[in-house]
């Protein structure tokens, strides 16, 4: 690996051009590839998945001129090939995996306060759905959802996506709330 190499704007632009001739679409594809690589490295048990994903992208970018002229097919497949090599190297120098410490009680309390506030900001419909999804006791998630989907008259998959979306909104709201609150 060339340790002296650094990412230049020209190389990065070339990478985006290779991904898609439309710059906006190229940006979207770039983000999709990076997020997918992170999931792949995490799935393989790598604690620093983000660093490995970035390393994979850097290696592809470094060779972008050759790749552009030699490689045909979906660029994502090329990234995957490089990711496998990066993973093998990672295994050889695998650092000790130390789990991050749990949050202290003040932080946990703040997170809960933020959650309460964020739930209040949801629409009444979403709040009700969330409480039914998580509040019903004595049944598994699958049973709860089946009953709830029938009651709401929507497909199970639509309900799954709706719950996921509400969770995502809440997470983002909590994140903002924590950032704006002194601990």
């Amino acid at each position: 690996m060339n340790k002296n190499w650094s990412l230049s704007q020209e190389d990065f632009d070339a990478l985006l051009d290779w991904l898609d001739s439309d710059r906006e679409q190229a940006g979207i594809k770039y983000e999709q590839i990076r997020s997918s690589l992170i999931k792949i490295f995490t799935g393989r048990g790598c604690i620093d998945a983000e660093e490995l994903a970035d390393e994979t992208i850097n290696r592809v970018t470094r060779r972008i001129r050759e790749i552009q002229s030699d490689f045909t097919g979906d660029p994502a497949r090329y990234f995957y090939g490089v990711a496998k090599l990066v993973y093998l190297e990672y295994l050889r120098r695998k650092p000790p995996q130390t789990p991050p410490p749990p949050p202290d009680s003040a932080r946990a309390e703040l997170e809960y306060r933020c959650l309460e506030g964020c739930i209040q900001r949801l629409s009444e419909e979403d709040r009700d759905l969330l409480l039914r999804e998580y509040g019903a006791k004595g049944r598994t998630q699958a049973d709860r959802r089946k009953a709830l989907a029938e009651e709401l008259g929507i497909s199970l998959n639509a309900l799954r996506i709706r719950v996921y979306r509400i969770r995502l909104t809440l997470k983002e709201c909590i994140e903002k709330c924590i950032q704006g609150s002194p601990l």
């Binding site: 995490t42 048990g45 809960y112 959650l115 509040g135 006791k137």
Partner: peptide, 25 residues
């Protein structure tokens, strides 16, 4: 599954949500 900090954060969120739902059941 719980190897990354991000997933541990997601687990904390899941527990908080359950705690909230339990108290509003």
């Amino acid at each position: 599954f719980l190897i990354t900090a991000e997933r541990q954060k997601n687990l904390r969120f899941g527990k908080l949500l359950q705690k909230y739902a339990n108290s509003h059941i």
